[in-house]
């Protein structure tokens, strides 16, 4: 088990190096230099070259790469050009907002799609199943930004039930429970937009894995033991369909983080997504590289976690070399 995990962890290392190289080169290949738009137009080319030399910009590419990688490994992602703050500090400031949003969206989508997927998987031929399947197909097909605008129009503009932007109501300075309630009101719309597409996807996966399982011999054997429907469904069907579910969820989380770029921008939610949007607009290369590298690490970590969870839910995985 430990060996299995160590092997998985080691395979992540070359992937990480590859990603860092790709990120570095992509940014490096951009036309212009980091000082474009940053220094006064009066600077002479000689002075500029001297400045570039001093920050190491004229060193060979691989030296620059190793220097950047070495710093990144120590948690130093450089300084943001726009904000003049360390990149890791910027990410740290915004991270909890994104985690809050993506986490609520994930929790919401699991809370809805688990029972829904079980229900539709067990009643494959029912009318309800057909309607839910079609509905989820429709939901998958709607672009998130459009859905966001429809929801804003209905819930915020027309019915005035929910706020449209930000994390808290500006100028109210709520504390304690009132603060939590305020944040909760703000999170409903963006989290729902993120969750709805997710619900549809998770539901389809769970439905198909449950409806495959129900035909297995062992399910009939479980009923033959005298187990009630609930005693068969909750531990046995759920744990057996957990593996595909873990796969989808672990693929969805990076998706949630990148979808946050759109959603956070629309809802003016101060998270990593909006930070990266700002970084792109302002040609803030250090910040952009830091965010991309950070997201890559998160994605790898989640995959590693998924591998670990496979082994937890399915003993057969532990044998695989």
């Amino acid at each position: 088990m430990l060996l299995y995990f160590i092997r998985r962890a080691l395979t992540a290392v070359p992937v990480l190096v590859g990603i860092s190289l790709a990120v570095f080169l992509l940014v490096h290949l951009q036309p212009g230099d980091p000082f474009v738009g940053m220094i006064s137009p009066d600077t002479t080319p000689e002075e500029k070259a001297e400045m570039l030399r001093r920050i190491g910009y004229l060193d060979p590419v691989w030296v620059q790469y190793l220097r950047w990688l070495g710093r990144a490994a120590r948690g130093d992602l450089g300084y943001s050009i726009q904000h003049g703050t360390a990149v890791q500090v910027l990410i740290g400031e915004r991270l909890h907002n994104t985690v809050l949003l993506a986490g609520s969206a994930l929790a919401l989508s699991l809370a809805v799609s688990l029972p829904l997927g079980l229900y539709t998987g067990l009643r494959r031929t029912g009318v309800a199943d057909m309607m839910l399947s079609n509905l989820s197909f429709v939901l998958v097909s709607i672009p998130a930004f459009f859905l966001a605008m429809v929801l804003i129009k209905l819930f915020a503009t027309e019915w005035r039930l929910l706020p449209t932007s930000g994390v808290v109501t500006v100028g109210m300075n709520y504390t304690g429970l009132a603060h939590i309630g305020d944040v909760a009101r703000h999170i409903v719309l963006p989290a729902s937009v993120l969750a709805i597409t997710n619900i549809a996807i998770l539901n389809r996966y769970l439905r198909s894995s449950v409806s495959d399982l129900i035909d297995h011999d062992f399910v009939r054997a479980l009923f033959a033991k005298g187990l009630s429907r609930r005693a068969v469904i909750v531990p046995h069907l759920l744990r057996n369909s957990a593996k595909p579910l873990i796969t989808v969820v672990s693929l969805e989380i990076p998706g949630l983080l990148s979808a946050a770029l759109l959603t956070e921008t629309i809802f003016n939610w101060p998270g990593i997504g909006r930070l990266s949007f700002e970084a792109v607009q302002g040609r803030d290369y250090p910040l952009l590289m830091g965010i991309v590298l950070f997201l890559a690490v998160v994605t790898l970590a989640i995959n590693l976690l998924a591998d670990l969870l496979y082994a937890v839910v399915d003993p057969r995985v532990r044998l695989v070399r």
């Binding site: 297995h216 011999d217 033991k225 005298g226 046995h236 744990r239 399915d314």
Partner: peptide, 20 residues
């Protein structure tokens, strides 16, 4: 079921839940 009348099946490898 399983109490007064019990049943065993053809393919024992398929009749167990593999993950418990």
């Amino acid at each position: 079921r399983g109490g007064r009348i019990a049943m065993i099946f053809q393919d024992p490898a398929a009749a167990f839940d593999p993950v418990f």
